[in-house]
Design a protein around this nucleic acid. Structure first.
Lengths: 178, 178
DNA sequence: TACTACGTTTAGAATTTACTAAACGTAGTA
DNA sequence: TACTACGTTTAGTAAATTCTAAACGTAGTA
């Protein structure tokens, strides 16, 4: 008799390709999406070598992408006593990952960008000079932008703190507010 | 006497660079961020040629990026009677833009990716074959993923419908839920 | 010490991206 | 009709990205 387990392979592959596409859409490497998908669909943590054989990427690529995914909190390293291999498992709480990603902004390029908005706002609010009406207009616009970033941040924090925000929760929020 | 209005220029430039950085961080062209920033800081709609002179990009680049920004709902074309030029102004409700961007997914690559998750879920729920335990595991994981996408979508809809979701609103939500 | 089994880093290739410069299409105007 | 003023498209280019292949570093083991 044929091993019936095999009938799930094509379904897995379909999802791997789907997540690769989503990854690419958001500007991440396609391989990164594939790696995450493999881990997300694996019932048990996978080693780097298992990822190599299942994704077709080389060790180097896996190594790099896996580190990036871990920095974003989308996967977690797992070490086993007496086993030199590193294993990885997928984070299943996506909201927590979003939060991690937003925290990550405290370093790097994104951080300086956000900080620059904040700093521009302060300069506009405290400084003098420039034509009054234009200054007021700019201040208002920059303030709105700054508020937006803060709101997103707060919302992501909230979602992570609630350990996820299901469809039901979102619908409750809607009901309360409308 | 020197024109004092000029003292606002460096502040504008700082923000333009900040938004360019944010744009790049999210995987969009830097120039796209710059164009949006110019429009967002302009008290009145700007023409394509004004954008050319203010950003230093060429007409072609502006034309392309402006179209992409409009598709995402981050800017809007403005036409004036008896004026052949096209003008553009920035959308100031960012939540509405997010919503537009998520609607945009109904075409293109992202659409097919999201649809594939949905379709995989259906196959898993209705189909047979494969080992029972593994099938159950996969179904659960894919269902969680699908729920996540739906929740994000619902939340973005809500925010757009409320015409924005300020810091205050987010804090109210938090209070209610915690 | 040498050997093995790992993960990481590097050099370079292939691909993709984001732009420029210039040709092009088109709608209004004389 | 030709002319002008615009936006769009195209061909080509420079730079960045993402990978491969292979060298490398290192920690355990004999």
């Amino acid at each position: 008799m044929v091993n019936m387990t095999e009938s799930l392979e094509p379904i897995k592959n379909e999802l791997v390709e789907g997540l690769s596409g989503i990854s690419a859409f958001w500007g991440f490497p396609k391989g990164m999406g594939a790696i995450f998908a493999m881990l997300y669909l694996a019932p048990t943590p996978l080693s780097l070598d298992e990822l190599v054989s299942q994704t077709g990427l080389t060790k180097g690529a896996i190594s790099t992408n896996v580190r990036a995914l871990a920095r974003m909190g989308l996967i977690h390293p797992v070490t086993r006593l007496g086993d030199r291999k590193d294993y990885y498992e997928a984070e299943t709480n996506f909201y927590r990952s979003i939060r991690t990603l937003l925290m990550e902004r405290q370093n790097g390029e994104f951080a300086r960008a956000i900080a620059s908005v904040q700093s521009v706002l302060e300069k506009l609010e405290t400084g003098a000079g420039g034509e009054a009406a234009e200054r007021a207009f700019l201040t208002e616009r920059v303030r709105a932008l700054n508020d937006f970033f803060n709101a997103i941040d707060a919302l992501a924090s909230a979602a992570a703190r609630l350990d996820g925000l299901g469809l039901g929760t979102v619908q409750s929020i809607l009901k309360i507010l409308k």
